[in-house]
Nucleic acid binder design. Sequence first.
DNA 1: CGTTACCCCTGGAGGC
DNA 2: TGCCTCCAGGGGTAAC
Length: 275
Amino acid sequence: MPELPEVEVSRLGLVPHLCGQRIVGAVLRIARLRHDLPPGLTERIVGLRLDGIVRRGKYLLFDCESTTGGGWLILHLGMSGSLRLVTPDTPIRKHDHVDLIFERSVMRLRDPRRFGTLVWHEGRDVGAHPLIAVLGIEPFAPDFDGDWLYAATRKRRAPIKTVLMDSHLVVGIGNIYASESLFLAGVSPLRPASMLSRQRCRRLVSAIQTTLEKSIAAGGSTVRDYVHSDGGAGRFQLSCSVYGRAGEPCPRCHAPVRSLHLAGRNTFYCPACQK
DNA sequence: CGTTACCCCTGGAGGC
DNA sequence: TGCCTCCAGGGGTAAC
């Protein structure tokens, strides 16, 4: 379900409701998601105050007094994870795996496919955690511009779409936004990354940032609903140009949108507009 | 080193 | 109605 915008929208929805509160309990209903849930996690985090929530790529990092003897909860929603704010008497549904109980709120993690992650990092430097240390540049980082992408792709012969989705290079661009950004930039997903000109790299970075910003803004307008509902509101794919639209007319030139598989992932593009 | 196939897991959609 | 196959917004690993 979540790409960077959904994760960011979740973060924006959680921050005003949770930050500043102390953790008073936790319920772990299964032993592991992608990784083992930390043994003894509840005992470790009870009493700690949530000082902030940071997004890094598609990870949410919960700052639990990390600068004064605490640490970080590292959360990834995988393909099917979602977070909701509930009350203590909200019925548990299937796949509701974890509750983090705060003084005045309960944050509930649901993840049917269990590709998500919840681990603990002791101490202040969460960037040193192996899951975080390997991550690439943030798409909104000041350094992430056309020149950066150009330099980073000179030896990459794989299709640009596959390269954009490599989180060791740049984080947060999932399968939907890769297709959407390439469409906006007029770049074929099949083009070998090393064959992009500097000019095209500039256009592509702008398109990535525009696409992500727009979708965060779209979700952001319904932040409260997003985190308080089943996650149905504020979903970006309502306004996709090409993703999921194989056979439909391209919104720019009306040629049929085509789909193909790249590195095992469904890819949508307009053969007429994207070169 | 870069790249791809495959795997983790459940549920929904569509064919028969 | 039921059973089957395929597909899904992520990412790690093994193997080429």
